[in-house]
């Protein structure tokens, strides 16, 4: 924020440790508005009126579909039932036992977890590194980088994926050309998709490339709010660079970092388009992630019930992360 921004009297510092948690190197709770007076009990209906439109909108779009998904997962709904309205037979937990008993499903789950972990670690690591580095860059370099990040972020998925697909093409791809011509390796005609490890390297690159702008820009903003004086004082006191980061910088950006990481986990867990498009709308079995596996079951194998069951399982798997996410949020929410 610039100094010219609207006056915010005694802005609360981000990363302020929540009251009750042991303080890192920061002062006492700031002298901002005393907590407790923040919330007040006014006309008890007003807050409900304020959230009503949101509730109505969410309910209108999600409630019945969600119930429908749960119902479908205990039935056997195919195209015929979907189209003709014929009653679908109830099958109890069959869909779930089928899925859990399917070896391919577990392969897909592990692959998804692994892929998600690698992507999130790479995205967050690169993002943090770049954001830290950006603070120390010349202004021109920083502006150019920001521009590139912004343009990358705005590119439609379909187009970005097409371009990465060309890059990695075996016959006319720039990647093979560069490796062969400039690095002297024999990558002529090399197919990156035959070995899923290499293939996922490319898909991971699309995912990470697409996610890094959001992370860098956000973390960079968080970093601008770390008091420079503290960093300097710490390093004059003889703290190493890692020490400064650990005790001064990290506590400030931690909440932001956690939030982005959590969102990244959710987004990367549900990756669909990147895999689907880059494999020409027909990913091979060894390229299936949960997102594409769901799609295959529901639309291609004509079992919308299996698809529904898989999506519920996905939600359950993700809710582990969600609990963490919620706790973070509610913890912060508590002290407001």
């Amino acid at each position: 924020m610039k100094a010219a921004d609207p006056p915010v009297p005694v802005p609360r510092k981000p990363g302020q440790p929540e009251s009750g948690t042991p303080a890192s190197p920061s002062g006492p709770p700031d002298s901002g508005p005393a907590k407790g007076t923040r919330k007040r009990r006014v006309g008890p209906l007003l807050p409900y009126l304020l959230i009503a439109p949101t509730i109505v909108a969410l309910a209108a779009v999600f409630v019945w579909p969600l119930i429908k998904t749960v119902i479908m997962s205990f039935q056997d709904v195919g195209r015929r039932e979907l189209w003709t309205g014929e009653a679908a037979p109830w099958v109890g937990f069959d869909q779930f036992t089928d899925i859990f008993g399917d070896g391919e499903f577990w392969d897909v789950v592990w692959r998804t977890v692994l892929f998600m972990t690698v992507c999130v670690v790479a995205t967050m690591g690169l993002g943090l590194f770049l954001a830290l580095s950006m603070q120390r860059m010349a202004k021109g370099v920083r502006l150019a980088l920001t521009g590139a990040l912004v343009a990358a972020w705005a590119m439609p998925l379909l187009v970005a994926t097409s371009i990465f697909r060309w890059f990695a093409d075996s016959d006319y791809g720039v990647l093979n050309m560069v490796l062969t011509k400039y690095l002297g390796l024999d990558f002529r005609g090399h197919n990156w998709w035959l070995d899923p490890k290499q293939g996922f390297l490319i898909i991971g690159a699309v995912v990470v490339w697409g996610a890094v702008p959001f992370v860098v820009i956000t973390l960079y903003a968080a970093l601008t709010q770390v008091p420079r004086e503290l960093e300097e004082a710490a390093s004059l006191d003889g703290a190493s660079a890692t020490g400064v980061f650990r005790f001064v910088t990290w506590p400030v950006i931690k909440p932001v970092f956690q939030m982005i990481a959590t969102l990244s986990v959710i987004w990367d867990f549900n990756v669909f388009g990147q895999v689907f498009l880059i494999r020409g709308n027909k990913p091979e079995p060894e390229y299936n992630l949960l997102g594409t596996y769901y799609y295959e079951k529901a639309f291609e194998s004509n079992s919308f019930s299996q698809g529904a069951a898989i999506s519920l399982i996905t939600v359950l798997l993700l809710s582990g992360v969600a609990v963490y996410y919620l706790r973070q949020l509610l913890k912060i929410g508590e002290v407001e």
Binding site: L50, L66, M72, L263, N270, F272, G291, G307, V315, L330
Partner: peptide
């Protein structure tokens, strides 16, 4: 405001983001 159901509302906001988008297409 501090009101009953506030936490629940916040939870809903977050839970909604967990739903896989392609999976909800037909419903």
């Amino acid at each position: 405001f501090q009101f009953i159901g506030r936490k629940a509302f916040m939870m809903i906001l977050l839970a909604v983001q967990l739903l896989p988008p392609t999976a909800m297409l037909i419903p």
